[in-house]
Each structure stands twice: as C-alpha cells, then as structure tokens.
C-alpha cells in the first residue's frame, strides 16, 4: 500500500489532498489514469505545482519526468498560479479573422501583461485559447468566467476594468 507521501512533498494534509487521494484510490493507483488524476488535482488546487506533481508521481509510481512531461504537453494544465482575475481571449479561426488579435494586444498594452502571463501584482492573467466554440458570436472573450460575445477592444477593456475595480471596492 503506497503511503500518502504528503509529508515528503510538502503538501498540506487537508481536504483537497484527501479528495485527491480518494480519486487516486478510485483509479486503483493505475498509471493509465494519470490524465484523470491531473485533471482532478488541477480542479482541487487551481494549478499543478512541483510538490503536487511529485506527489502524483510517487502515488502512481511513475518517474517524475513522465508526470512532468504529460503536465507540460497538454495546454490545459497550468503549472503556475493564475491571477485573481482572468481574461481569456479566443483565438480560434473565426475569432482571429474578426479581430481577436487586436483585443489581445489592447489588453496587453492597457494592463501591462503579456499573453500567457500574469501582472506583477498577481491581479490579472491574460490567456489566449484555441476556440471556445461560440464561433458564430466571434470574436469572443471570457472575463472571469463570463463570455463577451461579438467582443470589441472597448467592451473587453471596460469589462476587465470593471472586475478589477469591483475587487478594489470589496477590499475597502
């Protein structure tokens, strides 16, 4: 029976870890279930840091290189902590031909953040994604989970400013 290994990888023994363990157990520690387990881990923790990946590799008895290889191969897995707020611009073909690039560049300039990155203060991440499938409403952007269809530079910037400001108000 593999030990939980939590102490050695520096993961806190909390509810998230217990849920992760339950998933690993449900898959009977099967190496084939690596993707499913990484999905669960990211859902629970928000992103996959080094300790978490090491933990998964120990539990499944897989070399860390293989776990790291899989985690970096697939676009969905995030290895860095995302910002408090997230704006994702769709860069599918339909959105691209309708000017998604202009929206991405505008967000980059306005908030001093590069695509795929997070602002220095950790408040905003900018991601681009390959097609969210709402192509008929192109271009699309998603601001904190809410989709802006037929997006323009103006309405995306406005929406992002609004979520950033709302947070400031709450903080006060």
């Amino acid at each position: 029976m593999p030990d939980s290994g939590a102490a050695r990888t520096g993961l806190k023994n909390d509810r998230r870890l217990q849920m992760l363990e339950a998933t690993i157990k449900q898959h009977q520690y099967s190496k084939d279930a690596l993707l499913e387990i990484l999905h669960t881990a990211q859902e629970l923790y928000g992103y996959l840091d080094r300790d978490l990946l090491l933990h998964v590799s120990r539990q499944l008895r897989l070399p860390p290189s293989q776990v790291y290889g899989v985690a970096t191969f697939y676009n969905l897995f995030k290895l860095k902590k995302p910002g408090t707020h997230v704006v994702t611009v769709c860069m599918g073909t339909a959105c691209y031909v309708k000017g998604a690039e202009d929206i991405v560049s505008a967000v980059e300039r306005e908030f001093n953040v590069i695509r795929g990155g997070t602002t220095g203060d950790g408040r905003l991440s900018l991601f681009v994604t390959r097609c969210i499938g709402a192509c008929a409403m192109a271009p699309n952007a998603i601001v904190d989970g809410e989709t802006v269809g037929k997006a323009t530079v103006e309405n995306v910037l406005k929406r992002v400013k609004a979520v950033l400001e709302a947070e400031m108000v709450e903080a006060r």
């Binding site: 993707l35 499913e36 293989q66 697939y74 969905l76 390959r130």
Partner: peptide, 25 residues
C-alpha cells in the same frame, strides 16, 4: 468518458490511444 487536456494532435488515431493510456498524445 475520457477527458482530453488540450492537444490538437490527440485527435490523430494513434495519438488518441496514447492519451487514453495516460501518456503524452
């Protein structure tokens, strides 16, 4: 059900096998 994780190449019929087996597609 098996979930992909964002890899265009995974739709290729031998890559999809690798992905279902928990490896890089």
């Amino acid at each position: 059900l098996r979930l992909g994780a964002g890899a265009f190449v995974a739709g290729e019929e031998t890559a999809i096998l690798a992905s279902i087996e928990g490896r890089r597609a």
